[in-house]
Design a protein around this nucleic acid. Structure first.
Lengths: 148, 148
DNA sequence: TTCTTTGCAAAATGTTTGCAGATAC
DNA sequence: GTATCTGCAAACATTTTGCAAAGAA
């Protein structure tokens, strides 16, 4: 495996392209990888390691993390820290960014295009090209805001 | 200690007001609390537990975390997860939000006022009132962007 | 056949908790 | 005097690592 550049590569358009990318990098297609990839390509929801482990019927934890790490390096998946707990994983290329309430933990998504003006501002001020994926946009949801 | 509402309370304007707030809540002013609070009020930089421990000359780790937790409940400090490592803590009321490069870990700040249009959009779309403090705005800095 | 992957156990990290004795007020 | 705080040790949750055996191409 020739660990490559991750986020610079475009996301794969489908499961087949994802598998091909693993092969092209010298990786092998195993039951574990196929199952995890199929799961993540079958939904737009971001899943945590527990959820994936359950869905993939008892894949070993370290194996799961290693598959996900490989997928991330290859630009196939990305992970998000929604809050203080476990990270969640989703396939790359989804056009939304996460929004989370830091009080109750509820999560939403908004279109990445809606963040354009902030991205312009931050690029100008800091040189940072935002992706807004690794961590959610954080605040308080309506009910938690009222409750305070 | 009558654990109160945290983020809803305005930040204390200075160290004295912070100490008064602890007292008012039934807390005691100890050497540890005074030292940690003085440190955080003496700088605008967000510090992690290691840095605070060093600066406060060997305060016990669990005591430090308990002080910080109490300060957060009282609206005196806030913590930020800049990346995958330890959280950083700063006094509340600073008018900036963190921006971080997820590749190299470098961090910047931008004025909270510069995020107004995003805050309007997210409030309208999701009902979430953003604070953008708990997690940084994430992306790739200029050099990491070029390197990819 | 060769290099990658698995499965298990153990480590690492950062933070939290339980508890007995010390301390603030 | 009494509730809060400290200091220590142990637990905790999530993720990472080392290694020998199994598996993919």
């Amino acid at each position: 495996m020739t660990s490559s550049a991750a986020r610079s590569v475009p996301p794969p358009t489908d499961l087949g392209e994802a598998m091909a990318r693993i092969r092209a990098d010298g990786g092998r297609i195993t039951d574990a990888k196929r199952a995890v990839a199929e799961l993540l390509f079958a939904t737009d929801r971001a899943l945590n390691a527990d959820e994936i482990t359950t869905a993939v019927h008892g894949i070993e934890r370290s194996v799961l993390y290693r598959c996900l790490a490989q997928f991330e390096v290859l630009g196939i998946v990305e992970h998000i820290h929604l809050g203080h707990g476990a990270a969640v994983y989703r396939r790359r290329g989804l056009p939304t960014v996460p929004v989370a309430c830091m009080v109750c933990g509820s999560a939403w998504e908004i279109g990445a295009n809606e963040t354009q003006s902030l991205r312009d501002t931050v690029l100008e001020r800091t040189g940072v090209t935002l992706d807004l994926i690794h961590f959610p946009l954080t605040g308080r949801c309506e009910s938690c805001q009222e409750a305070s």
